[in-house]
C-alpha cells in the first residue's frame, strides 16, 4: 500500500522536482538530458529570469494585491457575516441564497460589461480596480465561512457587553472578533492565495508591464521565451516559492479552508 502511495506522491511532486532541475541547467544541458540531474548548477538562471521577466515589480504588485485583497475581504465579509448572524436583517436567508448563486455564476457572464465599465471609470489597468473585483468575487465565500464560525459563538457574551452599554461596533471588535479570528485567518489565506494565483482577471484588466502582478508578468515572459525552458523554469520557481513556504508553514489552516469550501456536512 505504501508503494502505491509513494508512486502517487512521485506523480504529484516529481514534475516539480524536474522543473527545479531544469531551472539549474544550461540550455544544451537540458536538451541533452531532460531527465538528468543538473551537473553544473546554473544559479545565474534565477538572476537572469528575475531581470528579464520583471519579477521584482511583479512580486511587489502581487504583494499589494494579496494584502489589500485579504484585508478588504476580511472587513467586508466580517461585517456582513456579523450582520447576518447577529443583527436583525430582514431577508437574511435571501442574502445567503443570493451569495450562493453569486459564487456559482461564471465570471464570464459579467466580464465583458465590467471591462467596459472599468475602462470608463478609469479603473482599467489600475491595481485598485483589480482589487475591487477581487473583493467582490472572493467575499461571498468568505462571508459564508466566517458566518459559520460566528454562529458557533454563544450569544451570552454579547448580551453581557450590551448590558454594560457597549455599541454594536464595540461588541463586534471587542467580543466577537477575538473569538472567531481563526475563521478570519482561514478566509484571508484562501482569498490571498486566490489573488496571488488568479489569472483570467489579471490578464484582462492589467495591461502595462510595470503594473502586472507576478502571474501575468511570468505569463508574458513565458510566451515570449518559450524555447528557453531553463529561464522559464527559474521564473516559475521564483513565483511559486513564496506560496510553497506559506503553505508548508500553515498547511493545516489552508487545508481547513479548502475543505470547508468543498464539503457538505
Amino acid at each position: 500500500m505504501y508503494g502505491v502511495l509513494l508512486l502517487l506522491a512521485l506523480y504529484a511532486i516529481g514534475p516539480m522536482v524536474l522543473f527545479a532541475f531544469n531551472a539549474l541547467k544550461t540550455q544544451p544541458g537540458l536538451a541533452a538530458s531532460p531527465l538528468g540531474l543538473p551537473t553544473h548548477p546554473q544559479w545565474h538562471n534565477f538572476v537572469d529570469a528575475w531581470q528579464q521577466a520583471n519579477m521584482g515589480a511583479g512580486l511587489r504588485n502581487s504583494a499589494v494585491l494579496v494584502i489589500a485583497t485579504a484585508l478588504g475581504v476580511c472587513v467586508i465579509s466580517g461585517c456582513a457575516a456579523y450582520a447576518m448572524s447577529r443583527l436583525r436583517v430582514p431577508g437574511s436567508n435571501f442574502f445567503i441564497f443570493y451569495l450562493l448563486v453569486t459564487t456559482a455564476l461564471p465570471i464570464q457572464l459579467f466580464l465583458v460589461p465590467l471591462f467596459y465599465l472599468w475602462t470608463k471609470l478609469g479603473l482599467y489597468d489600475n491595481l485598485f480596480g483589480l482589487i475591487v473585483i477581487y473583493w467582490a468575487i472572493f467575499s461571498p465565500f468568505a462571508t459564508l465561512l466566517i458566518r459559520s464560525f460566528m454562529v458557533g459563538v454563544p450569544k451570552a457574551y454579547e448580551e453581557a457587553a450590551r448590558i454594560d452599554g457597549a455599541g454594536e461596533w464595540r461588541v463586534l471588535t471587542r467580543v466577537v472578533l477575538p473569538m472567531v479570528w481563526p475563521g478570519f485567518l482561514t478566509a484571508a489565506l484562501v482569498a490571498g492565495l486566490s489573488a496571488y494565483n488568479e489569472f483570467m482577471l489579471a490578464v484582462t484588466f492589467i495591461q502595462s508591464s510595470d503594473k502586472m502582478p507576478v502571474s501575468t508578468a511570468f505569463f508574458s515572459f513565458k510566451s515570449g521565451y518559450t524555447q528557453d525552458y531553463t529561464l522559464v523554469s527559474a521564473g516559475g520557481l521564483i513565483m511559486v516559492i513564496p506560496v510553497l513556504i506559506a503553505f508548508l508553514l500553515l498547511q493545516r489552516r489552508f487545508v481547513e479552508g479548502y475543505t470547508s469550501s468543498g464539503m457538505t456536512g
Binding site: F199, F218, M239, V240, Y258
Partner: peptide, 12 residues
C-alpha cells in the same frame, strides 16, 4: 504532498 500541486499557480 498530494495537495501541493493545487496551490501552484495555473501559469506555473
Amino acid at each position: 504532498a498530494y495537495f501541493i500541486p493545487y496551490v501552484v499557480a495555473t501559469v506555473v
